[in-house]
């Protein structure tokens, strides 16, 4: 079934590509994002496709050219194609990496196009007309605040970190700033690479090593899934709880269902791409005035508000 959906999307894409561009009042919005190589990026792709369908329905004169790239070099090539072949009027881009894409995006800007940057800022922020991003330090702080409150300011925790990157450091440092002022003891922290299998492996070893763990900060929902399995296998699911992050549908569902193992989740929503596309389209089609930047809050999801962040059809 998934294959037919994919083929249908491809066919739709080709029809749009074949339609004549360049009519006077028609506008083209180019969207360039990384390919769906892991869970979060998969969610990103899904939300981008949803936004494309909705916005093209809302603005009949708007065409959205959505391209995905497997690495930074290909993404730079995509930008040339979007400007030269698809004749875009504005660009929404979630850069693979900040540094290598700064110059290619500057060239799009120099060609007179509107530029919206999502999530990963360029090394020269003066290029962007609009910046839409999640808030990594706030994600760390909100996670820490929740843990401190739920643990009553004391207890033993372990931390599973992501992939060694700026994003991971920002989350971790902000988290530690809060926690070190309390009596909570961080037993240890190890990288689990935002990956289920690594989450499982690292947690198994933490469980073997520490007889008393009160809570786990996994900071990512893929890692959390691995951690849950390890905790269940050890039969210690009554002794501890886990705080993940991102907003994966399975985790939001668990929070909604008041699962004691997963009492909350902290958002780092892949939906930010849809918000960026909507804002840019609004500017392009209605001339709406926009702020220079929109920072999306790392909202704490609890059973009270989980429903509004649950997207059962998303792949993430």
């Amino acid at each position: 079934m998934k294959f037919t959906i994919g083929l249908a999307a491809l066919a739709v894409g080709m029809m749009i590509a074949a339609s004549p561009a360049g009519a006077a009042d028609k506008k083209v919005l180019g969207v360039s994002i990384p390919a769906a190589t892991h869970g979060w990026a998969g969610g990103l792709n899904w939300h981008a496709q949803q936004a494309k369908i909705e916005l093209e329905k809302k603005y009949p004169d708007l065409t959205i050219a959505l391209v995905t790239a497997g690495d930074a070099t290909r993404q730079a090539n995509d930008l040339e194609d979007l400007v030269q072949v698809r004749k875009i009027d504005a660009l929404v881009i979630l850069p693979f990496e900040s540094a290598p894409l700064t110059e290619p995006v500057r060239q799009v800007k120099n060609a007179g196009k509107w530029v919206t940057i999502v999530d990963r800022g360029l090394t020269d922020p003066s290029i962007q007309d609009l910046y839409v991003a999640g808030n990594n330090p706030q994600m760390g702080t909100n996670s820490a605040d929740f843990m401190v409150k739920k643990l009553g300011g004391k207890g033993n925790i372990v931390i599973l970190r992501g992939i060694p990157t700026v994003i991971d450091n920002q989350r971790f440092d902000a988290f530690m700033d809060v926690v070190k002022k309390t009596d909570i003891k961080v037993l240890d922290s190890k990288y689990a690479n935002w990956n289920r299998d690594d989450g499982f492996k690292v947690m198994q070893d933490f469980l073997a090593r520490f007889p008393k763990i009160d809570a786990v900060w996994a900071q990512d929902d893929d890692i959390t899934l691995g951690v849950i399995e390890a905790v269940k296998q050890a039969g210690r699911d009554k002794d501890m709880w886990i705080l993940g992050g991102a907003g994966m549908k399975e985790m939001i569902k668990r929070v909604m269902d008041k699962d004691t193992l997963v009492p909350a989740d902290v958002l780092y929503p892949p939906k930010m791409i849809a918000d960026a596309m909507e804002l840019t389209a609004k500017h392009l089609m209605e001339g709406a005035k926009l702020e220079k930047q929109y920072i999306i809050d790392a909202t704490l999801v609890t059973p009270d508000n989980a429903k509004q962040y649950y997207y059962p059809d998303s792949s993430f």
Partner: peptide, 25 residues
């Protein structure tokens, strides 16, 4: 596999998973 999973994650039906789980555990 990325294509088959639509870029996300393929998850096994929980009912079958319960039956199949002991093969690993």
């Amino acid at each position: 596999v990325t294509y088959a999973a639509n870029g996300g994650t393929l998850s096994l039906n929980t009912q079958i998973r319960g039956y199949y789980r002991p093969v690993y555990y």
